[in-house]
């Protein structure tokens, strides 16, 4: 059973046990516009919560994607690196960025559920 949580910086996390799959929200992609490049973290790197973990670039600008929790990067999405436009077509599905091993589950406490995130972007 997975739970999806959101950050105020517009990342989503699908949590399955102690592993979170991370991406950017559909709202974020709509604000960025056409995505032409993504840079993903190296597998094995340990990220600190709120550290810049990945980069997503539209024609116009580059934006950071932050680590929503502290932990080690377990896997990155090679399909996304090859086809960055997936962010626009399926932000909260096929366009996941990386999977991270959650070091401290208490960090999840500060994140939003879907209803809170909807209110945040309204």
């Amino acid at each position: 059973m997975t739970t999806t949580l959101y950050t105020s910086d517009h990342e989503w996390l699908a949590i399955d046990g102690d592993v979170a799959t991370v991406g950017i929200t559909d709202y974020a992609q709509s604000q960025l516009g056409d995505v032409v490049f993504v840079e993903l973290p190296k597998v094995g790197r340990t990220l600190k919560k709120t550290e810049a973990a990945a980069v997503v670039e539209s024609v116009k600008a580059a934006s950071d994607v932050y680590a929503p929790v502290t932990g080690e990067v377990l896997e990155t999405n090679a399909e996304l690196a090859a086809e960055p436009a997936l962010v626009n077509s399926d932000a909260q599905g096929k366009a996941w960025f990386f999977k991270i091993k959650i070091a401290d589950k208490s960090e999840l406490g500060g994140l939003m559920d879907e209803a809170a995130y909807k209110a945040h972007t309204a």
Binding site: G33, D34, V36, S58, V59, K60
Partner: peptide
């Protein structure tokens, strides 16, 4: 206007 609904890529 920085872009319209079509987006920068399609407009270009």
């Amino acid at each position: 206007p920085v872009q319209y609904p079509a987006g920068v890529l399609k407009e270009h």
